[in-house]
Design a binder for these strands. Structure first.
Lengths: 205, 205
DNA sequence: AAAGATATTGACACTGTGTCAACTAAACAA
DNA sequence: TTGTTTAGTTGACACAGTGTCAATATCTTT
């Protein structure tokens, strides 16, 4: 209820310290990746003592999660987009837009996403965060497919949740390719191919 | 040319030592995973001295790669299966069979595959090994799609290599689900859904 | 200015890796 | 058989990184 905005000198200092630690971490993660960055490197660049890092964060993991929180929220928000097409063509347009959004977000945040992808598998916290994003996305895709099926737009002989995973997995992997700048085709081309395959495979007519 | 089968007592002993190290490693990897297993644990179970492990392997990575070599070869071999369907229906049958093979192999070798998946991202050697498998598979899938396109069986408005990645990515992720026993549906159901979506999206008629 | 509260610090204990000089044991030569 | 060489084994050591905590510094309040 009451926003405790205690802003005496000490508090301001501690806020600044935490910020310096985060800034330094971000820089180092971008430069050398997550694993190769050590706490010692971070505190040196931030100009603090070793123990200070552990005052603000439980460890390297928590520093990273702190840094990626915003991007992850974007991903979660993006998942729940209104979807109520009346025709197959309309569905295609909506889905295409969605794929583009997804891939472009990956592209724009490729630096932090790269660190993120490295940390999946390295840190169980990051891992479960990504799984949350995954399952949330799949959940909403399933909902959209079910809707299309109920409208007679999509074939009903396929299980919505299985198709949803299929679709998300393909998107996810292309996303990582984009993040690592390994994509052999342009984002636009990728989006077009993915959408065409998907919609023509799932939708009727 | 000349197979140097020196099998004096010393050599036999060293072979046995290496084998013991591999056995112990396998057991521990299965029990506690790759990362949590330490060299000390391994040499204790193998009944050797600490340094001995480093005589036979450069480190934990090399022990693992040694253990997964066989499975990986299987994956590589599997990729290059004859594919020359005359009709869409025939293509569907062949592809369905292939997906089943892929997922079943993952299922049968789920223990070692689980360790494998953990080590991807943790070890650059393992990572690049998996990438090799990936690219090889995608290469052959691309070849098959191109063939189908040339036969007038598949639509030509989609880039074969992009579709191939799309397809492989979906398979790969389902494979990991199977490996981690996270799959929500049976292997048969998964294979059916994947194949239907894919073939109906890509093939004509 | 003394006391109290908060923030900062680096030395320390701990875990794990990889190396290497010393050691042991088998094979061979005389 | 014994001495020598060669192959195989070993654990102590140096090193790198983590996380903790008692001591210290700095700011705020009385």
């Amino acid at each position: 209820m009451t926003r405790e905005e205690i802003t005496d000198g000490r508090n301001l200092r501690s806020i600044a310290t935490k910020k310096r630690l985060l800034e330094a971490s971000k820089e180092l993660f971008y430069e050398n990746g997550f694993e190769k960055t050590t706490i010692t490197q971070i505190i040196k660049r931030a100009g603090t003592g070793y123990g200070t890092a552990y005052v603000y964060f439980k460890g390297k993991d928590e520093i990273l999660t702190s840094l990626i929180e915003d991007v992850m929220q974007e991903f979660l928000d993006m998942a729940n987009t209104p979807f109520a097409p009346a025709t197959k063509q309309e569905a295609k347009t909506l889905i295409h837009k969605q794929v583009l959004l997804f891939l472009n977000m990956a592209n724009e945040n490729h630096q932090i996403m790269k660190v993120f992808s490295e940390a999946i598998g390295l840190s169980s916290t990051v891992d479960s965060k990504w799984n949350e994003i995954r399952e949330t996305n799949i959940h909403y895709i399933t909902r959209d497919i079910t809707y299309s099926q109920s409208q007679g737009l999509a074939r009903t002989d396929l299980q919505a949740n299985l198709v949803a995973r299929f679709w998300f997995f393909a998107n996810e992997n292309y996303q990582w390719e984009v993040v690592h700048k390994k994509n052999t085709a342009s984002i636009e081309e990728i989006a077009k191919t993915l959408t065409d395959m998907y919609v023509d495979g799932l939708y009727i007519m």
